[in-house]
Amino acid sequence: MSRPVLTVWYNTRCPVCDAGIGRQKRRLVEAVKAGRIEFRDINLEPDALSSRGIALEDIRRRLHATDAQGRLLVGADVAIAVWLTTPGEGWLARLFGNRLMLPPTRIAYDRFADLLYGWNRRKGRW
Rank of each mutant, 00 (worst) to 15 (best):
S2H: 00
S2E: 06
R3Y: 02
R3E: 11
P4I: 15
P4Y: 14
V5Y: 06
V5K: 11
L6Q: 14
T7D: 06
V8G: 07
W9K: 06
W9R: 09
W9F: 13
Y10I: 00
R13F: 05
R13A: 10
P15Y: 08
V16A: 14
V16R: 14
D18Y: 09
A19T: 13
A19N: 08
G20N: 09
G20T: 03
G20E: 15
I21K: 12
R23Y: 03
R23I: 05
Q24L: 10
K25V: 00
K25L: 02
R26N: 01
R26T: 01
R26Y: 01
R26P: 01
R27C: 01
V29N: 13
V29A: 11
E30P: 04
E30W: 15
I37E: 12
F39S: 15
R40E: 08
R40G: 07
D41C: 05
D41K: 04
I42N: 07
N43G: 06
E45N: 11
P46L: 00
D47S: 07
D47L: 10
A48N: 15
L49Y: 13
S50Y: 07
S50H: 15
S51L: 07
G53Q: 04
A55T: 05
A55L: 15
E57C: 03
E57Y: 11
D58N: 12
I59R: 01
R60L: 03
R60D: 01
R61S: 03
R61V: 00
R62Y: 10
L63S: 10
A65K: 13
T66K: 03
D67P: 01
A68C: 00
A68K: 01
Q69G: 13
G70N: 10
R71Y: 10
R71Q: 11
L72E: 05
L73Q: 07
L73H: 15
L73S: 02
L73Y: 06
V74R: 14
V74N: 00
G75D: 00
D77P: 05
V78G: 05
V78Y: 03
A79M: 12
A81C: 12
L84S: 12
T85H: 15
T85A: 06
T86W: 12
P87C: 10
P87M: 02
G88P: 04
L92G: 03
L92R: 15
L92K: 14
L92H: 05
L95H: 10
F96T: 00
F96Q: 03
N98A: 08
R99A: 12
R99Q: 14
M101K: 02
P103R: 00
P103G: 02
T105Q: 03
T105P: 02
R106G: 01
R106L: 01
R106W: 02
A108Y: 04
Y109N: 04
Y109K: 11
D110T: 08
R111S: 08
A113D: 11
A113H: 08
L115K: 14
L115N: 02
Y117P: 09
G118Y: 08
G118F: 08
W119R: 09
W119G: 07
W119L: 09
N120Q: 10
R121A: 15
R122P: 04
G124L: 07
G124V: 06
R125Q: 12
R125D: 09
W126K: 13
W126S: 08
